[in-house]
């Protein structure tokens, strides 16, 4: 089996012993069965068990292993090792803009707080019918590109507006979720949802920078969803 050595520069910080964070140079042997960055990280942890990162499904659906990889947010399990240029160390940092707990693990409280703030659940006050609420295939299609979000936080932590106002700007992930419910024909709370966002910070801090679209590992487009929310607000106002 052919093996090769990968060079890493990894952000390290253990609050128990480190005064401040530092970048560690470290290398690891990988073989041809190691296809993704996560495979290499698992190998690294076998060498140094103190390196800390989150991971779970290793197939890009759980959203655990979002990292800042060579300056760009992405999922370790979906990042192919072959995409890295030869001879240059791979630089790994925690997601930017959130407090670091340890090494590559960030505190996502603020991110989820924003997600929760948009009431991420279907609101329909009619008594539930015996059978399913009907929805045409066309109406269901409106939810495509919205419901697939895995809450990995790649988008929100790549957004300068979220960096400046993480407590007040909902961020791309939360706004995508907000539109997912606005767009659902079964949801009856559209007006309340728009009210909830009509604020100089919550929605309108989006300046269409589009970093979110650039980094989304699932290929979703939060900016488009945000644009649709704005359009609905204009329509409602005039």
């Amino acid at each position: 089996m052919t093996t090769r050595t990968l060079q890493f520069k990894i952000y390290r910080y253990d609050p128990d012993k480190d005064q401040k964070p530092y970048m560690q140079d470290i290398s690891v042997e990988v073989d041809s069965t190691d296809r993704k960055l996560l495979d290499a990280l698992v190998k690294l942890k076998a060498v140094d068990d103190a390196i800390s990162f989150r991971r779970s499904c290793r197939e890009g659906v759980c959203g655990s292993d979002a990292l800042n990889i060579n300056g760009k947010n992405g999922l370790a399990c979906l990042t192919d090792l072959n995409t890295f240029p030869e001879g240059k160390p791979i630089v790994l940092r925690p997601l930017p803009g959130l407090p670091v707990i340890r090494d590559l693990i960030v505190d996502m409280t603020q991110f989820f707080k924003q997600y929760h703030s948009i009431k991420p659940y279907l609101i329909n006050n009619d008594p539930p019918p015996e059978r399913e609420r009907l929805q045409s295939p066309e109406d269901r299609e409106e939810l495509n590109g919205l419901y697939e979000c895995i809450l990995c936080a790649c988008c929100s932590t790549a957004c300068p507006s979220f960096w400046w106002n993480p407590d007040k700007f909902v961020g791309p992930a939360g706004l995508l979720a907000a539109y997912r419910f606005i767009a659902d024909t079964r949801d009856q709370a559209t007006s309340e949802r728009l009210d909830n966002l009509e604020d100089p910070y919550r929605l309108f801090r989006c300046h269409t920078i589009m970093n979110c679209v650039d980094v989304c590992p699932k290929g979703l487009n939060p900016t488009l969803a945000i644009g649709k929310i704005k359009a609905m607000m204009v329509k409602r106002a005039i």
Binding site: Y121, L143, D187
Partner: peptide, 8 residues
């Protein structure tokens, strides 16, 4: 009824 987006 919880809102799961089943295909239709």
């Amino acid at each position: 009824h919880y809102g799961m987006p089943f295909d239709r």
